[in-house]
Design a protein around this nucleic acid. Sequence first.
DNA 1: TCTCCATTGACAATATGTTGTCATTCTCGC
DNA 2: GCGAGAATGACAACATATTGTCAATGGAGA
Lengths: 163, 163
Amino acid sequence: MTSPPDPDPDPDPDPTHATGLLIYEVLRLHGRLIAAGDALMAGLGLSSARWQVLGTVAASAAPLTVSDVARILGQSRQSVQRLVNEMERDGLLEAAANPAHRRATLVRLTAAGRDLHAAAEARRLPWTEGLAAGLGGADAAQAARTLAALRRLLERAEPPAGG
Amino acid sequence: MTSPPDPDPDPDPDPTHATGLLIYEVLRLHGRLIAAGDALMAGLGLSSARWQVLGTVAASAAPLTVSDVARILGQSRQSVQRLVNEMERDGLLEAAANPAHRRATLVRLTAAGRDLHAAAEARRLPWTEGLAAGLGGADAAQAARTLAALRRLLERAEPPAGG
DNA sequence: TCTCCATTGACAATATGTTGTCATTCTCGC
DNA sequence: GCGAGAATGACAACATATTGTCAATGGAGA
């Protein structure tokens, strides 16, 4: 059996090549993070998808609409809407009137939602600590800044015209 | 309407916090990359999911099985299997006998698959170039190394025990 | 050889995410 | 006020990904 080839972290200073490699690494990492998050939160009945929504609402100082959450997570409005609807049915989130927009209600945590988020944080933190020990804080912070810069480039860019 | 809060690239040297931020950025970036890839390859009839499979098979020096591709991409065997089956029906990939394992056939590109991959690269490269110009090659390379390190940590780690 | 067991491909069920469409609501310019 | 256009929530169809299960295959050790 062939073993999965691990493309060398190329010392090539070609910025395009490096950026292509970075993008490929984000794609490769994503599935593993989802799987790890699902496993980590399994006992809480919290999928990675729901955890992302819960965490985003919990972390935001200002109250958010469904569309806000979708923009933050980089997902479609409709995907997040379905998750939020389910989580409202499950009593984790509730809608609050939005004085600025009657139709676009604000999403906020219920007491149960806050409890679940606290439990999730209690699991996430030591897990993250273990990963941080293997990464180093400086590299992690630097990489996070670079990814944020890439994200902003994608947000500003016109949807690529495909030709 | 509230605008999506952009968490400051925190100067806090706490490694756990930095790693948590990095993970969150990977999640936020992923959706935007998928959307950009879909848009970029739309005219070729190539979704981001298929593009990832095509690119992985094309880039590998050694022939790969379906399970190999799944491991490289960090996705489940079954997801990749379905994509490969569809792409075989579409004439982009073909199965080749695996001398080491009769059941686990090797996946390789057909001529049509090679052509499509070349066309995809012709679109990907200038797009990546534009992003690289906004990132800087050194930062991109450094971030790619950090993400690869994080990926290896997740691959080595036992599936987190969820408690 | 034979048994155990991990790996693999196939299939089904389900969860998650995108795209398209529509009516409603808001914003902006006049 | 008023009309045009953008933003929003609802709904449907489809694409993608995970999980669970099963039989077939190959590898390692008795």
